[in-house]
Design a binder for these strands. Sequence first.
DNA 1: CGGTTACTTGATGCATATCAAAGAGGGTGG
DNA 2: CCACCCTCTTTGATATGCATCAAGTAACCG
Lengths: 244, 244
Amino acid sequence: MEPARPADLTKVEIALPSQCEHCDVRHLTLCSPLDGAEMARLVAILRVTDLAAGAGIAEEGEAADHVFNVTGGAVRLYKLLPDGRRAITGFLFPGDFLGLTARETYTCSAEALTPVRLCRFPRRKLEALFSEMPKLERRLLAMASSELAAAQDQMVLLGRKTASEKIASFLLQLSRRQEARHMPADPVALPMGRADIADYLGLTTETVSRTFTQFKTTGLISLQPQGRVALRNRPALEERAEGS
Amino acid sequence: MEPARPADLTKVEIALPSQCEHCDVRHLTLCSPLDGAEMARLVAILRVTDLAAGAGIAEEGEAADHVFNVTGGAVRLYKLLPDGRRAITGFLFPGDFLGLTARETYTCSAEALTPVRLCRFPRRKLEALFSEMPKLERRLLAMASSELAAAQDQMVLLGRKTASEKIASFLLQLSRRQEARHMPADPVALPMGRADIADYLGLTTETVSRTFTQFKTTGLISLQPQGRVALRNRPALEERAEGS
DNA sequence: CGGTTACTTGATGCATATCAAAGAGGGTGG
DNA sequence: CCACCCTCTTTGATATGCATCAAGTAACCG
């Protein structure tokens, strides 16, 4: 717990807020490639923020003055059409990044699904660090690339998969993201409601619900208390997800 | 045509291949922020490649040894499901970038839609330039961010728009991309077939065709020879694209 | 424990897919 | 240069997966 590190240990200990030392998603975040001294510089400009479930974090079109790293809870990103139709463009979990944009405004709105903890960075100050810490920019580029790859997968899902393929893909995606966070792959936590899942997958709440029921009936999953889903037959789910 | 530039002119003239001097999409590409000397370094590692229509450029899952800048023609990016269903994740036009990935493999396959000209960069060599030319990396990050924003718009389209909203959005997107290339906003060139459009919008060729016919009938567009579409009522198209 | 919200289930409808075939380009060889 | 052929596009008829409309049921919260 208290690793015996060389000389710069005190500097780090002084600089880092307690959250960073115990942060179990550092390997996923912006901070992952930074050493102690660099971390201290980053920490100097961040502010840890806690939000209640349902709180708004960013609004599409609003000036993107801050970027965020989620360190606890879950967030939904969405866009609205003028008539109120909603598309959820992503869910964020601890370690995920929010606010990556070349534009001066947010491209999506963001809301807390559960109580959320964020590391908030003023964008201007973060960008100022880029020239001194190129690792930071490289890391951001890597994160952007992998978000892009995820977005492409989501396009395939939305454009060409059936309802049950979508649900199977979704459950497996969440399972894999839990694994990446050193959490058990099985039961999958669903902090979002059926309507959120529907708006993420291009379906309706009713279809989402019916598909869950069908998966339950065919022994693919079982529903547990507190919105948890046990994956009873992962190979079958994987086959279903890619259209057998 | 021959601008009177200061001292380093000769250096640039020697270093730049003729393509770069007349490249009318530099403002969209990787190269845009670079000065003459920097351009020379970039040019030193690139190779201009011409491909025939239908030629494969990259294969999903294949080692991503090169990245490309399209300088002429049009490209389709796509992914396949095991049973052959196809989703087109994007079309590339001159100025667009191909191969942006943090992974070691391509995330999509890419094919020439028309005869294509590419600037091909060995990824390893390009990445080696990052540390010396941080502008390059910054530019790549900006390009990735705007691709991400486009991907989010596409998710809204795929998940929540109707067929005619999809087609209207698609036509306007192409029109805007023409404008960004200093081409007339109208008529819109469609170098891709109906099946490509369908796979891009999550529809079938028949539905795409019917929707074009409907737009033609209602005076929104008119079809011209060589797959060109004239936008006869742009405001109405814009309203349609966002769901009135 | 009661009220409210979210989820599930059922009945019906519709937008778009699927199946089928006719028409239009566009390039090539005669 | 024209005619043929191949492929792509358009149009029509029918089918269907998912949406919509409508209750009922369970879960959650104060």
